[in-house]
């Protein structure tokens, strides 16, 4: 694969994601003010002093957006990595073992998926203590059901191919079959799915924070910032839309990359037809 084969849309996405990660990594260097430092009056308009204005408590909005990238990206990424590992390990185990293990895992997964994610999260978060660790875990476990379903489908698709049968006939062990025969052939769709889950995690985390159930103040996170500043909207103050826009922009960037990955996957498959 060469760089020039990457379409412009995917480049936009890659640049956007990189920008968000740079903000997250170097927040203290990039942000003009502190995370929860009150620097001016409430809801100052955009201007030279405060590029994006100030928020409902008089904190610099730009600084908070930069710091917010930290929390938002960290939590979303952590949740995605956990959900992905969990989902893939369980789904591949199910696909290769078949039989009772597969049945049990898949039925339980169906049950978990039959409750809408947000509703499930609301019920669980109403019960559990509110801290970062619980939040990440709840997001990860709920999301891993989606990863499981895709992972199992993809792995089964490959597991029934004759080259896997050929490896079994040769006498290869289960680990070889999973890592050498199946995994290399599922990387592309799995990578796309990782992006999709990441985008979803960003949106989901923001939604929870917006509802007051995600990251707790005073830590800055984009969804929570929307909640903090939403009352300004009626007075025509767009402060809430800035973190909202950041969420949207990041999610769009991730989806642009995913779209490209998915198209690449289907064009790789294209030649094989229905045989």
């Amino acid at each position: 694969m060469r760089l020039r084969d990457i379409p412009i849309s995917a480049w936009i996405g890659i640049v956007g994601i990189a920008l968000a990660f740079i903000c997250a990594l170097f927040a203290p260097l990039l942000a003009p003010h502190g995370e929860s430092e009150i620097v001016a009056g409430v809801w100052e308009p955009m201007g030279d002093a405060y590029l994006l204005g100030t928020d409902n408590l008089g904190r610099d909005l730009l600084s908070r957006v930069i710091y917010g990238a930290r929390t938002t990206l960290f939590v979303a990424l952590a949740a995605t990595v956990i959900s992905f590992s969990l989902g893939i390990i369980l789904s591949f185990t199910a696909a290769v073992s078949r039989g009772l293990i597969d049945m049990g895992l898949s039925r339980f997964n169906d049950l978990m998926m039959s409750i809408p994610t947000l509703i499930f999260a609301l019920v669980v978060l109403a019960v559990l203590p509110q801290n970062l660790f619980v939040l990440i875990l709840v997001m990860a476990i709920l999301d891993s059901t989606r990863v499981y379903r895709l992972g199992r489908a993809v792995a089964l698709d490959v597991a029934v191919m004759e080259f896997v049968e050929a490896a079994r006939l040769r006498g290869e062990g289960r680990l070889w079959i999973i890592f050498r025969e199946i995994l290399p052939n599922t990387l592309s769709p799995l990578l796309a799915e990782f992006g999709l889950r990441f985008a979803f995690s960003i949106l989901f985390l923001s939604t929870l924070s917006f509802l007051g159930l995600g990251i707790q103040p005073p830590a800055a996170d984009w969804g929570g910032m929307v909640k903090d500043n939403k009352d300004g909207i009626i007075f025509g103050i767009p402060a809430a839309l800035i973190p909202g826009g950041a969420i949207a922009a990041l999610a769009i960037c991730v989806n642009l990359v995913v779209d490209w990955l998915l198209k690449r996957t289907s064009s790789l498959k294209g030649g094989r037809g229905d045989a």
Partner: peptide, 15 residues
């Protein structure tokens, strides 16, 4: 539509 599925509900709402 790709952009639209990336927008959080509250963002559209407040906009």
């Amino acid at each position: 539509s790709l952009a639209a599925i990336s927008l959080p509900e509250f963002f559209i709402g407040y906009l």
